[in-house]
Amino acid sequence: MAKLTLDDLRKMRGERQKAMEMRDNSNKDAQVIVGMGTCGIAAGAKEVFTTLIDTLTEKGLTNVLVRQTGCMGLCHAEPTVEVVVADMPTVIYGHVDAATAKEIVEKHVIGKAIVEAKILEKPSVDIVKEK
């Protein structure tokens, strides 16, 4: 990639913001986000990540994005997974193992129902979006 000028950077930010919004709201897209800090990985986040991808491939779902993020701060409940599905409230699951990962795909992403017992609260407001 070439070095950015000030204008390039601003343009890039605008485009990426739109892309992120689209990802959150678009009718087709769903996102599954796995917390992969040291703590999460130690608790088994990598296994969860691969199970999610494998299950989605198995079900032939190509419109779901699985991605990593850092620590959500919910150490007692690692590994944690956030699920964003269009027309559904965004939720965070804790203590996710391979079995729950499968359930998240089958029940939540496909069945549009929340998976029992493992939901946690997002710890705080988002100051970047706060005006």
Binding site: T38, C39, A42, A43, C75, H76, A77, E78
Partner: peptide
């Protein structure tokens, strides 16, 4: 401290 205090003891 290995930094996985949520999983203590480790």
């Amino acid at each position: 401290c290995l930094g996985c205090c949520g999983l203590a003891p480790v």
